[in-house]
Structure formats: C-alpha cells, structure tokens
Design a protein around this nucleic acid. Sequence first.
RNA 1: CGGGGCGUAGCGCAGCGGUAGCGCACCGCGUUUGGGGCGCGGGGGUCGGCGGUUCGAAUCCGCCCGCCCCGACCA
Length: 543
Amino acid sequence: MAVRIAAGFAARGSSARSAACGLWPRPFSRGSKRVHAKGTANIISGHGYGMINLRIYPARLSRCPMSYPKLPSRAENFSEWYNQLVLRAELADYAPVRGCMVVRPYGWALWENIQKALDARFKATGHQNAAFPLLIPLSFFEKEKEHVEGFSPELAIVTHGGGKKLEEPLAVRPTSETIIGYMWSKWIRSYRDLPQLLNQWGNVVRWELRTKLFLRTLEFYWQEGHTAHATREEAEEETMRMLRVYEDFAVNEAAIPVIPGRKSESEKFAGAVTTYTIEAMMGDTKALQAGTSHFLGQNFAKAFDITFLDRDNQLKYVWTTSWGLSTRFIGAIIMVHGDDQGLVLPPRLAPIQSVIVPIWRNEEQRSRVLEVAQQVQSALQPHIRVHLDDRDHVTPGFKFNDWELRGVPVRIEIGPRDVEQGVVTLARRDMPGKPGKKTVPMDGLPQVIGPLLDEIHTNMLRKATEFRDAHIFEPETYDEFREVVGHGWAYVWWCGSPECEARIKEDTKATNRVIPLEQPGGEGRCIYCGAPARLKAIFAKAY
RNA sequence: CGGGGCGUAGCGCAGCGGUAGCGCACCGCGUUUGGGGCGCGGGGGUCGGCGGUUCGAAUCCGCCCGCCCCGACCA
C-alpha cells in the first residue's frame, strides 16, 4: 500500500508578484519562517465559525480601500474583472497564506443568506445538522481505494501537536465521508437506525495548486450532507432529491439557471458510484459545477464496515450518499450576474436588498431629507433588508457608484424634490440607467418593494437563461465543435468512452461537464469518433 | 513543479550609484452634494529579506522569501 500522502508541493520559488495583480492589496510577504517538511502543514488552527443569525448587513460599510478608477470591463479581461470586483466589493481578501482567503462581512452576510435558504430546504427534507471533527486519522483515507487516490495529493497533514511529533499523522478533512462512515459503523445496528439523514456546515481544506478567490481556495466553507439508507433505491432517490434541492435553490434564490445531470466516469467524485451536478454557465461562457450530489453505493459502507440487521434478519451493508455546495457558489453569483459596474446580487440573497441614498444641498435640506429617509427606512425594515447611507463625506454620485459596485438590487433616492412631492425615486440594479428608474409615492413603498424585488429576480433569471441558451451550440462536425468551445458550450452526441473525452480535453481544453438528465432520446454519432451514441453531453471549458 | 511577469507609502506607479518621489486613497478646514466635486493644509516608507561590491546601494552582484498569469491536478 504505497500510498503517498503528500500535501501540496507548494510551488516553491515559482515566481511571481503580480503584474496583473499589481492592482490590489498584496498579502504579507515578509517574515515568513520556514515551514517544516516540505508538503506538510504542521499546525493547523481550526476555523470554526459560529452560526451567526443576526441579520448583519454592515451598519456602515467602510469606503472602498482602493483608488477607485473603474473596474476593468468584463469583455477586456474577465479574470481581472472578477478578481478586482471581489476585493473592491469587499466580499473577500487574500489571506497571508497562499491560496487562502478572508471572507469579509459583506461576503459572509451573503453566505449566511445562502446558508439560510439551503438549511431550510434540508430541514424540510428531514435532515438534521451535526458537527464532525476537523482532524481525521490519516489511515482513514486508505480504506477506500478511489477515495485515497483522489484525495491524497491534496491533503494537508498535521504531524505535530503539543510540541511533539504525533504517532499517527492527522489529515485536515478534505471532506467527511470517512469520519462519518466510521461513526456510523458504531451507531448503526438495525434497519430501525436507518435512514441517517445528516448535514454539516463547516470548512474543509484541499491543497489546490491553482487558486482563485471563492472558486478554488485551499480552505473553503461549505455544507456537506451525508445519508445512509437500507436500500439502493432509497439512496438513489435521496441523491436525486438533493440534486433537485440544489437546482431549486439555484433557480429560485440565486436566479441562476442550471443544468442538472450526471458526471462522466472521469469527472466523478473519488469514491462515488455516480456523481450528479448542477452545471451553470458563467458570464465568459465557461462552465462551473455549482453543486454536487453523489450516490456512493456501498463503497464507504464496505470500507468502514457499516452494516445493519435487516427485517429479514440478514446482515447488510448500508447505501450512502453525500452532497455539497460551497462558497464557490458565491463565485457563480458574481460571474453569472455581474456587469461592468460591479456585482448584481440576486434580491433573495443580497445582504442589503435596498439602500436609501439621501440627497441634500444645505443644512436645512439635510435634516428634512434625513428625517424622511429614516421614516422610509423604518417603514421598510419589517419587510426587507434595508440600509440608509447617511455618510456625509461622500457625494450622492459616489454612493450611486459604490452601491452599484456592491450589487444592491434597489436604490431608493430621496432628495428635496422627492420630499416635496411625497415620492421616492427607485433605481433597479438589473436595469442600469433611466429605464431602471421610476418615481413612486412614498406611502405605498412597503407594498411596492416586495413585488419589485421579485420582478428583479425574474428578470435576472431570464437574462441569465437567455445568455446561456444563446451560447449553447450543437455542432455537427468536430471542426465545428473545436470552434464553438472557444466561445460557448457544445451540446453533442457522445459515445460514452473515456478515451474520446480525454482526447477532446487534450485537443481543446474542453471537458465533459454534464450528461443532462433530460435526454433527447434516439441515437446519433459520437462527435469525436463517429461511433453510434445514445447520450448527449455538454462539453465546455470550465473553472 | 515547468514557462512568463513582478516585489519602492493603503493602492497604482516613477526613480536604476549621490538626502525617498508622483497620482489616487487617508486626516483637518472650507466650499460642494439628483451619477465617482473643488481648493488649501497635513500624516504616512526597515525601497520583500539576508549577504556582497562601493567613500556611498532602492539602484550593481549572489542567495533566499513571496505574489500574479499560463500549464499539469481539482468543489
């Protein structure tokens, strides 16, 4: 069993400060003391996070830390646009450790709203939350062959504790199938103990080589659901049920259209029998796996000896599933909806759903306008997450840009003219400029704002869907295929062979993203080899 | 780890042997405020680190550390 558990061989000496990144704050770069054995993380401090359920939307966001000339446009450099937007909107920042990020209050508030929306759905489908430890005996990873092969290269390993070398190294969890499997083998005796329907909110560590804020960081936050069932059918149903939960969440909370489907053998989770995904198209047409649900069969049951005595008095292995959605999803929200002005947050998840920007010319107007603004704030507070921007050291124009950068769905402008007439001016983030502006009476605002947020949600979903559909192509020939994966997705017949996938990847960088659940039926010819094919799959470049 | 680009004020940069600079941001005062206002004044630096060359190093040389992009691996 020559399994080498190597933690990331962090690119030592591999170059770089940023040319491109010269534009934003750099992490500390000095005073680093040498780390121990190459490839091992030595001391890990757990990152617990509390279940903070107060409704924090920062009472007063600090001003933009950077000089603020404009964001690069999406068309000119999508990657730069993304990096700068995350920093400027104060969603996250680089941590002193390569590949790690700090999620700032505004970003965390967004994550909390994601958590709330998902958690409610998990509870509604019968799951309970629990917490398993961050540290897992290294030996656990050797029990399931594919799992160890998949995860070994990216484990962070703790070798010392309390000043001494540990007898058995501990892995910082990259996912919790193993530790949960171990516990289930203790807890499960009979069919009466099934199903086990658990979920955990937490953080995991995977020693990735190439990182990007939210999309791929060494440590990330997520939810991992784990269930165990008496029968295969029940476990398969669970896998699909949770896939549909993710789909529902993406569409109805985040306004992100997704394609639910199955992953090919080469793309599936290490240790799964079948992996399902919700696949989303980003604004640069690249694909992103936005959530996954795995049918694990009896692989982990056998590795961890999770058995139960069934009604028929036979000892059987359980059937397990796992499913997860991570802070990566925030990256999806940014890249699906964002525009050249900045974030466009889906109203149901936005930390601040509406911001009030008061406008005045002199002291007298200031007090009058502010008073009205506060009344409007109070009137809206029971209904929506509203923030009054009463900063007086920046101009209204600055605030407009600032809140647009931060993606607040609705801006409420209140100036002397509005006060005079008993109205407010609303500006929609999803419709820049005059078309998105309208004047409404102050009185009816609480009744108007809810439907407006819904309309914005619907409009965002429609736009994202139209964009996606306009960039899904059905090439007939391989030449056409090569051409379209440069600027969109290719929806094509595929014979099912891993070799064709591998060749396509090597040739075009496009991978098999998803085999949609919804299939046209019939038969075609594999886009690569021309053999008879019964499946249509989506190939695309991906994050 | 392979290829490329880099490290000077919070951010972006100039300076490239002779006292550390500019723009933005920040602080104060005034004036402004319906789409990133303006003026005046002010604070802020072990020039990534260590060593070498030199009368003198941000600048030349060596080693190290770190960052970003592309590639191989991935939620």
